[in-house]
């Protein structure tokens, strides 16, 4: 009865879904050919300039655009984009909710055990978003460690969260927020004194808002090399992707693309995934 009911309703629902047959029941890896035929589904964050989905449904931002350009060389198209939270990106990849994550996800040790990272495609910085004039004078991560009554807003599951925790910022000081804009609103609502996030996203968020400042990237924050993340079974895809990515990074197209979104195209030089995977956290 239980199984029957479940199976029956599953069948009823599958037939009523909009995109039948997406994601097969077997857990084996999809071949590159399958991706060529079916397209690829990408998870992004709503965090320009790294990644975002526009009002017309187009997936864009530096990370998805690099993904798109490289996949195009492999004959694969981005079929669908989903905005999700950082903490759900890797579990969703395992659950086959999407095939690749292109959200400027920073390469680090714990994540390297769960997903396959491409070679780094964006190397960038983090900073604090603070009320105008920086009343609490927050300039470095060490300030957060030294001053235990400082509250810092951070997105759960992000590299930033790991950096703060590892530096010794206590759990009680961290104010978790569920999406990038909520971090800013947490500071405005005085739930937090500062918001630790990527420099460029912060600048984009506060662009017209005079009540916020974005600090210089703290000197004590580590290098953040980001790449796109594939399922652990997609080794074939990863290999082909990296080959094309390395070629792509040498082109002027890559340089233009990075400049367009405000990133430094030089920063990525010499940074490797193998090295970044040693970053603890």
């Amino acid at each position: 009865m239980a199984g029957l009911l479940l199976a029956w309703s599953a069948a009823a629902c599958a037939s009523s879904g909009t995109a039948p047959g997406a994601g097969s029941a077997d857990k084996g890896p999809k071949s590159i050919d399958t991706y060529r035929k079916e397209g690829i589904k990408v998870a992004v964050a709503d965090a320009p300039p790294y990644s975002q989905i526009l009002a017309d449904g187009k997936v864009t931002g530096a990370s998805p655009e690099i993904l798109r350009a490289v996949l195009k060389r492999l004959g694969i198209e981005i079929k669908d984009g989903v905005v999700t939270t950082y903490d759900a990106m890797i579990p969703g990849l395992a659950a086959q909710r999407w095939d690749v994550v292109a959200a400027g996800m920073v390469i680090k040790e714990s994540r390297c055990k769960q997903v396959l990272f491409s070679e780094p495609d964006i190397v960038s910085t983090m900073a604090f978003g603070v009320p105008a004039g920086n009343p609490r004078n927050i300039k470095s991560i060490a300030d957060g460690v030294a001053n235990k009554d400082l509250k810092i807003a951070v997105l759960p599951g992000t590299f930033e969260e790991g950096v703060l925790k590892k530096a010794g910022v206590t759990a009680g000081q961290l104010v978790t927020v569920n999406d990038p804009r909520s971090g800013l609103e947490a500071v405005k609502a005085k739930r937090a004194d500062a918001y630790f996030y990527t420099t460029l996203s912060l600048r984009q968020l506060v662009k017209d808002d005079k009540s916020f400042d974005v600090t210089e990237p703290p000197k004590d924050s580590p290098v953040t090399g980001a790449g796109v993340a594939f399922r652990t079974t997609d080794t074939e895809l990863l290999k082909a992707y990296n080959e094309e990515l390395n070629k792509f990074k040498a082109t002027t197209e890559y340089v233009e693309l990075m400049k367009k979104f405000g990133f430094d195209p030089e920063a990525v030089k010499g940074v490797t995934t193998a090295e970044m995977c040693k970053t603890a956290g």
Binding site: A10, C13, A14, S16, G17, T18, A19, P20, A22, G23, S24, A25, D26, K27, A88, P91, G92, A94, A95, Q96, R97
Partner: peptide, 16 residues
């Protein structure tokens, strides 16, 4: 949404 697919039952989001 996140756990059922691990058992090989992979419904499209809307169906789930």
């Amino acid at each position: 949404f996140y756990a059922l697919p691990l058992f090989g039952i992979n419904l499209v989001p809307l169906a789930a």
